[in-house]
Design a binder for these strands. Structure first.
Lengths: 156, 156
DNA sequence: TTAAAAACGGACGGATTTGGTCCGGTTTCA
DNA sequence: TGAAACCGGACCAAATCCGTCCGTTTTTAA
């Protein structure tokens, strides 16, 4: 099972939620409540997404976050990249984020890159709008999560 | 960065290595030495791959492992599946391995499945033979890893 | 002008996962 | 019969994850 960060999972959920009300300013408090993701976590999430330019922050009272672009123009690939760095199936972990300093020893890498590009293409073709579902479908009990339920999303 | 298990990384390296000598019986000791992956780890790896049927074990003296099929007929997708379970970009973590028991709340899942299938297709089209490189390309110093070097493979 | 609302940034720490080790057992060959 | 090799599972240290908790800054509205 190729794991996605849980944070990334949340991000897709929360962003999709924002996409249902494209132009409104959403506070983290509201987003947290609606998605059942803990507030400080949503906050941390949004900060990262803002830095990546996927959402725009508006500070001060009556502030919050707005999608920088329509949901239909934000791909899942972008969300993943924003939170986890470049999309790549890799186990390269020690330093060397974008460049392998023993690349000569690492001839397999070129082959992986081919695979990675294929995966990126697949992810780039799915937008947040594609992932959006109506609230009625999302939640059995509108406005109230089932007691003891886990945060919404793709979590089982 | 979508992480692959490091074990899976090793597996691709080791299996590719076996592919260069398709019919020989490879001992874990030899594979470990050639790949610079610690022996007990190679051992653990091979056990899992054997269970999945990708390699066949031969016990007893002069035993070892053999590829069950030619390298050109083993896809990277199969290796991943053998070690990490079904290929899926997912954060579903709590129990519920193959079936989400709150699937009704989890409407997004269907959309993810579409993505997952695309990724699986990409991975299924790359075989171990595609990943194989000649030993000369793999190692600058044949038979000897650079001192302090990390295990070979795609590790940086 | 002041108070409240909201984002910002970063440090911290507990729980989980990972991956590496070890060891006694079993099978096969010479 | 002994050595070589796989088998299987318990175990533990290290790394990672993710959620929390500060104090700070910015903006709006009373």
């Amino acid at each position: 099972m190729i794991r996605l960060n849980r944070l990334t999972d949340y991000a897709v959920v929360v962003l999709s939620q924002m996409g249902r009300d494209q132009d409104r300013v959403h506070t983290t408090a509201r987003l947290a409540e609606d998605s059942a993701v803990p507030l400080p976590t949503v906050s941390k999430l949004m900060k990262q997404l803002a830095r990546a330019g996927l959402v725009t922050s508006r500070r001060g009272a009556a502030g919050g976050y707005v999608l920088s672009r329509p949901a239909a123009q934000i791909s899942v690939a972008e969300v993943i990249t924003a939170l986890e760095g470049p999309i790549a199936l890799t186990a390269c972990v020690d330093g060397a984020v974008d460049h392998c300093d023993v690349e000569a020893l690492c001839a397999m890498r070129g082959n992986w890159n081919k695979v990675n590009r294929a995966i990126e293409t697949a992810l780039a073709s799915v937008t947040l709008a594609d992932m959006t579902v109506s609230p009625a479908e999302m939640f059995a009990l509108p406005g109230r999560r089932p007691p003891g339920g886990k945060p919404a999303g793709m979590l089982s």
